[in-house]
Design a binder for these strands. Structure first.
Length: 466
RNA sequence: GGCCCCAUUGUCUAGCGGCCUAGGACACCACCCUCUCAAGGUGGAAGCACGGGUUCGAAUCCCGUUGGGGCUGCCA
């Protein structure tokens, strides 16, 4: 195969969701392996619904995922001349006719009709083009249009069941099916890899393509859509699955890419963690599944945790930094101390599935004022008989020992032995008093970085409250 | 309604006629490890939608049924 040219052609009518990202990824992987060209085209022919902010979100999300484009972004809104020229050609060659039927009139006429869709009322009226009338494509009454699809094989559509569809609105604006074909031809797209939802309209695209003539049809590959828990196609309006949201939650782009690649495709063996290079090397459209896949956040989180733990500590810290800073951080700006974060980073890495989870675990270090969680205080300190003795003894011993995790541990162990209870139980009141929560990073390492002065102050503060 | 697509555990998948008493992973449960929580380890429960064919042999091929989805817009 000579150098393939693929395109990703989103419409900027809503936030960019993971389904679009998956389609983009499949296109990109396919192009990369074969040394092809990945074209990015923004399909903003619908002036009512398109918006620049959505475009920015698409570009931003693709960049974040590392899905780079070789050409574009092209904007259909800037390519109107091409569509007009194609419209002229098709109209002059008789493939298009003007139609001034209203939706209501069509519905009234076709109620109970044998063949679905538009009834061809204007097909032979010879109406002139112009404002107020749309342009319809004259679909052959017989024969069939076959879609040759890498993923699905041959899909056959009977022409008589395809209505004379509109390609240009009555205000002159081209519709998706026309602009899409004109651009794919103009950009010399060789492989159209897109979501399954487009399969039913593909014969229309093929008909237009052939009517325009001169350029060989591209190869199609319709990949299964991504669905929600109710197994409905992911929707921008209904489902909260924006790529940017996952980014904001602290998912790593490499984890997202890995996970997305495995939705509808697999390497053929038991491997699940694959580098981008491995994906590029092994991805095959022929191996893409046929059935819709559910986007499972739990599984994504698992992948993310794996990727977070695999990060070198320094890299982890630098990736984490943005999530501890700024308005989302639960502490004043000037309190953050990255040296302290770095000291606890390895312990943190093992405990979070997303970067945004780190803040809650570090809050005891930077929060100002420090306020222990009420429910934990009640449960582990107020309602526990031995809590005051533990806190008092800890405060006494902590004032004198070496300030190291090992010394802290043996101090608490001695208190534990004296009480005849497990270390796990004894550390509870101390943890809540000093760290504010009953769960979190390991106690002794945490106290070490908290420092003796603050630890003692918090133990005494807790004692006062009892 | 019509057309089209799809169908392996709750989920993502391996399987492309014998290697399958169906493999891996997420989630779930139990146990181990353990200063909490995680992480890690071990084990467990859980699936070829149904019915006909074809074949010596079917999760794998064919047909039908059922179920789910998509399209059916002067959206993309």
């Amino acid at each position: 195969m000579s150098q393939p040219r693929v395109r990703f052609a989103p419409s900027p009518t809503g936030y960019f969701h993971v389904g679009g990202a998956r389609t983009a990824l499949f296109n990109w992987l396919f192009a990369k392996r074969l040394g092809g060209v990945f074209v990015l085209r923004i399909e903003d022919t619908d002036r009512e619904r398109s918006d620049e902010t959505w475009t920015a979100g698409i570009l931003d999300s693709l960049s974040w995922l590392g899905i780079t484009w070789d050409e574009g972004p092209y904007f259909q809104s800037a390519r109107r001349g091409l569509y007009d020229a194609a419209t002229d050609q098709l109209f002059n060659s008789g493939h298009l006719y003007a139609c001034d039927c209203t939706r209501e009139a069509i519905d009234a006429r076709t109620k109970g009709a044998a063949t679905p869709g538009y009834d061809g009322y204007c097909a032979d009226r010879g109406l002139a083009r112009g404002p107020g009338s749309a342009l319809r494509f004259r679909v052959p009454d017989s024969g069939e249009t076959v879609v040759h699809d890498i993923v699905r094989g041959e899909v056959v559509f009977a022409n008589e069941l395809i209505e004379d569809f509109i390609v240009v609105k009555s205000n002159g604006d081209p519709l998706f099916v026309l602009a899409n074909v004109v651009d794919d031809r103009d950009m010399e797209i060789s492989h159209i890899i897109r979501a399954d939802e487009h399969l039913p309209t593909t014969p229309k695209a093929i008909l237009i393509w052939q009517a325009l003539g001169g350029v060989a049809l591209p190869t199609f590959a319709h990949v299964p859509v991504l669905v929600n828990e109710k197994r409905q196609k992911l929707s921008k309006r209904r489902d909260r699955v924006a790529v940017q949201d996952y980014r904001a939650l602290g998912y790593l782009p490499e984890a997202m890419v890995n996970y997305l690649a495995l939705l509808g495709w697999g390497p053929g063996d038991d491997r699940e963690i694959l580098t981008v290079d491995e994906l590029i090397d092994e991805f095959r459209l022929e191996d893409v599944n046929l059935s819709p896949a559910f986007f499972d956040e739990k599984r994504l989180a698992h992948f993310n945790g794996l990727y977070i733990r695999a990060l070198p500590v320094a890299e982890f810290v630098s990736r984490l930094a943005p999530f501890l800073d700024g308005e989302t951080a639960p502490w004043p700006d000037d309190r953050l101390d990255m040296a302290v974060v770095e000291a606890l980073a390895p312990l943190l890495q093992e405990r979070i599935a997303t970067l945004a989870e780190a803040a809650a675990m570090l809050e005891f270090l930077f929060a100002d004022p420090f306020v222990p969680e009420e429910a934990s205080v009640t449960k582990v300190i107020t309602n526990d008989q031995s809590a005051s003795a533990i806190l008092l003894e800890a405060a006494t011993q902590f004032a004198e020992i070496d300030w190291t995790p090992a010394a802290l541990r043996s101090a608490v162990e001695s208190i534990s032995d004296g009480l005849g209870q497990r270390l796990g139980k004894t550390q509870g009141p101390i943890r809540v008093a000093a760290m504010g929560r009953s769960v979190g990073l390991p106690l002794f390492e945490s106290l070490e970085v908290l420092g003796r002065a603050r630890t003692l102050a918090r133990l005494h503060e807790a004692l006062h409250r009892i």
